[in-house]
Design a protein around this nucleic acid. Sequence first.
DNA 1: GCAAAAGTGTTTGAAGTACACCCATGT
DNA 2: ACATGGGTGTACTTCAAACACTTTTGC
Lengths: 232, 232
Amino acid sequence: MESSGEAGTYAHDVLAVVLRITEAVPSVLLWQRAREPQAGRWSLPAGRLGPDEDVEASVRRHLAEKVDLAEVAHVEQLGVFSDPHRGPPPRRVATAFLGLVPTDADPAVPDDTAWHRVDALPPTAFDHGVITRDGLDRLRAKLSYTNIGFALAPATFTVSELRDLYAAALGHRVSATNLQRVLTRRGVLVPTGATAAPGPAGGRPAATFRFCEHALRVTDPFAALRPPGDGG
Amino acid sequence: MESSGEAGTYAHDVLAVVLRITEAVPSVLLWQRAREPQAGRWSLPAGRLGPDEDVEASVRRHLAEKVDLAEVAHVEQLGVFSDPHRGPPPRRVATAFLGLVPTDADPAVPDDTAWHRVDALPPTAFDHGVITRDGLDRLRAKLSYTNIGFALAPATFTVSELRDLYAAALGHRVSATNLQRVLTRRGVLVPTGATAAPGPAGGRPAATFRFCEHALRVTDPFAALRPPGDGG
DNA sequence: GCAAAAGTGTTTGAAGTACACCCATGT
DNA sequence: ACATGGGTGTACTTCAAACACTTTTGC
């Protein structure tokens, strides 16, 4: 048992929506609660904020218990969830993060932990279903105006493979032709020079690419109201 | 004096970057600390998260002590600031918000509180300078792809007046011609039918407009990778 | 009439979608 | 040969910036 602490102080949790594209659909990393509260339901990886770390360091520390951190290609803050009744007392405040894992990493996970398709979530604990949805919305938005794809894609890939990743994440068809042009114009894709072998049915060998940078960059900063003399 | 509370719990603060365009420049609402820590320095409006409120309710409650809440046209979460050394012990975690006040409101503020131009901030307490910058960056970004201008503009206005607001907030020249076309095309401006009287130097009377909605709406959701058959 | 400010028309360019067509490989 | 998938070329659309020109006022 734990007491509720001094008046005006709250346990602060950090939690992570870790997404990965699997089987042409986004999946989120969840673990099944063995004990109350909410035994049997599925939770996002989470943990208590420690005294000598900020929330980002904390979420990385806790994530390391569920996945190899080296395979989490990007982490960013989603926001604070603080409804006083978001869980049973004592009251907890949580800072949520979005984490992304490339498809070529297949991190080992503990027995109680598994990837779940976001379109068919199992019963989730507390507000974790809502938070997962927020994470996916953030990813979808940023695919359009940043290079965040680097965190979903393998080290090298063909445009077709990348197209499938984007289509899975966005939930709608994506044209390989246009995807290549958009990302090339923005300078986020670099050809490796190598080509991939065709499949068993034949076809022209595909050129392979990689992302130029592996840090988040906004590639389409504003659609309108740019400073004068800035092109357009 | 206050103790540091039970291990693993932290005081949670909420604070607000309240912005308003004054004298053709963005200003932020700050109050001067009378007591240690950081006596004499200027702080963002802030307060402790209460036991029965979420962070947004809390920031509204604390803001009400500094400004008339009815004059804050928009509030949104910026993020969590949690560096263990962002202030003196005991450690405090803070959720920051952005608040916007229209130019036609001139809220009464307490004696210790004043608007300060963001381009000439006085010495700020803790990390409040950085947080202020974050708030301004958020405002600038959203001016381009949302209708957030409604929260800066008076109830009705001419396009010239609106142009001056946008230019002040963005920090660069804005063309009234193009501003009107962009906002009209997006359906965020509505003509009132009335016209404003010309100034003493003459000139054609300006038509007046108002914002169609007074809730935040994303008007330019994605520049690229839209679903097929969605125009383009 | 003239200056000042508002507003419209039009040109230019960039970005993105759609689609036709060519290329390289396997069987 | 021909099917299969990869890639380029190009037309079309939308959006927004730039700028010339017209409109309506005060003096």
